[in-house]
Structures are given as structure tokens and as C-alpha cells.
């Protein structure tokens, strides 16, 4: 394998890992606080992408970087808040006390509904908006031209979002309350924390991370029906490999899966779809709780 191909794979993997990380972070955050794996998270990602594309076409997008990024931010964040509030109030808070099977089924039902709604709202024709990618131009490293948006902007935004989240969790009132609820919901409530409110806010934050991931991905990919399902499995693979609720581990897992996926795209294109699943299967065979999970004693 030549060094330029290796570099290509690394940068490609980095781009994918950045997006995967954002989406998986939302999933793992929601799990950490509410103990629910939101199966509809993949659809949330797709909605974010479509929202950014819609806002982009509705607004007159300029050629400047700022103007091309604006629809991504507006579309992604507003869609995330909207979906987060609707799903949390309508479904999630009502299933917290149910057993795990019903929780999974309820979010799965939400996923099914969202898949069809997406088709009604945005149709089945592929949607693509490349304004931001063109605006940022390209860089040339070792004779290969890369889009700056992909190799510089996406990884850096993902990193900034991660650091901001870490800071929020450690240094703000909301963040500390969130950690407390994640640690033990009952004790946190007894200490006067409004766990219901924290649940709503966390869920909204998680969905915003999902929609933002979709919005940031929208300039580089084409949105088609089915995007949501693929992303759900991919982001779950990342979360499972890292260990449920492990925020920092998610970075490592996202990089692992992102680079492996990029590698297979360049070396064995037929296996491109299969590789993330294989990695998940292998890691879980070796460590059933994921790479970074702390083993918990099971309750009797």
C-alpha cells in the first residue's frame, strides 16, 4: 500500500469518524441519563440532514463561508430541539418505567413513523446541497487534493463540540445535575434535582447532536430514504464498541470504525457495508460490554 493511499484512507476515515462521533455521542448521552437506546436516533440524523438542505434552499445561500454554514446550523439545531421535545414528551418519559423490551419497541415504532414522515415531507428523490464545501475550497497534501470542509472543518467542529460538552458536564450547573442523574436517578431526585427536566434537556441535547451530525454531513453526502437506518446501526456500532454511556471512549470507537470503513472503501469496495458490523461483532466477542465499559455487578 502506497503512502499516499494510506494518507487518503486516514483523511477519509477522519471525516467519517467526526460525523459518526457526533451522532454516537448523542446516542450515548441519552442512554447515560435515561437508560434508553433511542432506536429512532438514525432517523433523527436523517431529519437533521434534510432540514439543513431545506433551509439551505429556502434561504439564498451566499458564496461566503459564514452564509453557507448558517443553514446547517439553523436547520440542524432547530430540527433537533423540535424532534427532541416532541419525542421526549410524547414517548420517552412515558416509557421510562416499562421493561426494556417495550422501551426498545416504542423507540422502534417512532423510527418507523419517522421513516415514512421523512418520505412524505422530502420525497424519495436524492437531495444534495454542496454550498459549504465549495465555499471552503480545497487543500493539497502530498499531491492529493482534499476538500477543506471534510478534512479540516468537520474534525475540528467535532472536537470543539466534544470539548464544549466535556466542559458543560464538568463546570456548569446543568452539566453536574446531568452527571448526577446519570449516576443515580433516585438519589439525584432526593437531592432536589428535577430529574424529569434534566431528562428532557438531555434528550434534546442528544437529538441536537444527532441532527447536527446529519446537517454537517448533508453537504458531503446525498440524502436518500434509508439513510436513517444505516446511520442507526453505524452509530450503535460505535456506541457498543466504546461501551454504553462512555463519552470519551466514543472518540476512539468512532475513529476505529471510520478508518476501517474508509480502508474497506479503497481496498475492498464490496465489503464496505459489512465492515462496521464485522468490527462490532469482533469487539463484542472479545469484550461483550464494549472496550471502555466498567463492569457492573448484576443486581439480584
Amino acid at each position: 500500500m502506497t503512502s499516499s493511499l494510506l494518507l487518503l484512507v486516514l483523511f477519509d476515515g477522519l471525516t467519517q469518524a467526526a460525523l459518526l462521533f457526533l451522532v454516537a455521542l448523542g446516542l450515548t448521552l441519552i442512554f447515560g441519563v435515561l437508560r434508553i437506546i433511542n432506536v429512532a436516533h438514525g432517523a433523527v440524523y436523517a431529519f437533521g440532514g434534510y432540514a439543513a438542505a431545506s433551509v439551505g434552499t429556502a434561504l439564498v445561500t451566499g458564496d461566503s463561508i459564514g452564509l453557507s454554514l448558517l443553514p446547517i446550523l439553523i436547520g440542524g439545531i432547530s430540527m433537533g430541539l423540535l424532534l427532541g421535545a416532541i419525542i421526549e414528551i410524547g414517548v420517552i418519559r412515558r416509557i421510562l418505567a416499562m421493561d426494556e423490551v417495550m422501551q426498545l419497541l416504542a423507540t422502534f415504532a417512532v423510527f418507523l413513523i419517522m421513516e415514512d414522515l421523512q418520505r412524505f415531507i422530502w420525497g424519495t428523490a436524492p437531495v444534495s446541497v454542496g454550498g459549504a464545501v465549495d465555499a471552503m475550497g480545497s487543500v493539497t497534501i502530498a499531491n492529493i487534493t482534499y476538500m477543506s470542509y471534510q478534512v479540516i472543518f468537520l474534525p475540528i467542529s467535532a472536537l470543539i463540540i466534544y470539548l464544549a460538552l466535556r466542559w458543560t458536564l464538568g463546570h456548569t450547573r446543568f452539566g453536574r445535575q446531568l452527571v448526577a442523574v446519570a449516576h443515580n436517578r433516585e438519589v439525584a431526585s432526593a437531592m432536589g434535582i428535577n430529574a424529569k427536566r434534566i431528562g428532557l434537556l438531555t434528550f434534546c441535547l442528544g437529538t441536537v447532536l444527532g441532527t447536527l451530525g446529519g446537517a454537517l454531513a448533508s453537504p458531503t453526502t446525498t440524502l436518500v430514504p434509508g439513510t436513517g437506518g444505516d446511520m442507526m446501526v453505524l452509530s450503535f456500532a460505535v456506541v457498543a464498541v466504546a461501551g454504553l454511556g462512555q463519552i470519551t471512549g466514543t472518540i476512539v470507537a468512532a475513529l476505529l470504525i471510520g478508518v476501517a470503513k474508509a480502508l474497506s472503501v479503497h481496498l475492498f469496495p464490496e465489503l464496505d457495508v459489512v465492515v462496521p458490523y464485522l468490527i462490532m461483532l469482533l469487539i463484542l466477542l472479545w469484550r461483550p460490554q464494549g472496550l471502555f465499559a466498567v463492569t457492573q455487578s448484576r443486581r439480584v
Binding site: 416504542a106 422502534f108 415504532a109 417512532v110 423510527f111 418507523l112 413513523i113 421513516e115 415514512d116
Partner: peptide, 11 residues
């Protein structure tokens, strides 16, 4: 709207 129907009924 098949998925919408089964999703809603499931919920």
C-alpha cells in the same frame, strides 16, 4: 404509508 401505520399501531 405502511411503516407509518405499523409504527403508530405499535405505539
Amino acid at each position: 404509508a405502511w411503516q407509518l401505520v405499523i409504527g403508530s399501531v405499535l405505539l
